[in-house]
Amino acid sequence: MSERANWNEFLIGAVIRVIGFSTIGFVILIFFFLLQQGAPALTQTSPGEFLGTRWYPTLELYGMLPLLLGSLLVTATAIVIALPLGVATAVYVREVAPSWAREILKPLIEVLAGIPSVVLGFFGMTMLAPFLRETLNLPTGLTAFTGALILAYMALPTMTSVAEDALDAVPKSYRDAALAMGATRWQTIWRVSVPAARTGIMTAVMLGIGRAMGETMVVLMVTGNAARMPTTWNSLFLPVRTMTATIAAEMGEVAAGSAHYHVLFFIGILLFVITFMINLAAAPAILAKRRRGGLR
């Protein structure tokens, strides 16, 4: 009996271990696959070209700068919009809302994260883009700004709940100290609670950037997909094309094994590296938060 129980223990342990390590294994395998498929791009074309400003695969011009800048422009704008909204929502939910409102709002915000991106993209195409075209008097409503608005909306739930957790972790004793000196509720929030939660809020920003950077469907549907250099400020209100949208749009039609095919994978490597760096940058903030959380 006990021998059998031991055997069961061993089996269960082994299975769990294999499953656990296989996730890491898959990530490594995917990375190697990307490398293997993307690396030939470096020999089949001259890599110096990748820094060019023109992306015309049919003419064998693979300048990635417009795509890279397109991604950065859309992501940065999305975060600039989402950060104040996310922090304000988190402050409201954590510090201001009565508890019944908090109980309703928290799950609602989390539900927002579950809306499929294609639905949001559809909404962007049919509602937001025409609206922006008319109110801002643009040639087309499919612009970087349209994409940024929807991405901001998509990043909001994650950013809000992470920022809210960070505010929640701020010890009550800080608030008491501020109140006992005659601070008002707002002064306590903006000068004590929010600054004390800044590492967590930074984590929220990083996660938001990761989410916005990697999002494909929405940007494919609403940013217009013109691979032009966003060099001036009004580029924000003109079509752009992101790295993700390029891969999604072109991968289906490219001849497997061609230079274009490998270049698309190379863009994938770039995306992988960028998101990896962002996560790496967020790591100290997350670890610091954990350390502080352990202290008090």
């Binding site: 800080y174 008491d176 100290a177 501020a178 006992a180 601070a183 008002t184 002064q187 000068r191 600054p195």
Partner: peptide, 27 residues
């Protein structure tokens, strides 16, 4: 502001020494 309070556990803000003392006058 007229009736100040010191708590059981030291609870300085996670800010610099200067900013801690300057907090009250500033607000």
């Amino acid at each position: 502001a007229r009736v100040g309070m010191v708590f059981q556990r030291p609870n300085p803000f996670p800010q610099s020494v200067f900013d801690n003392v300057a907090f009250g006058p500033r607000i």
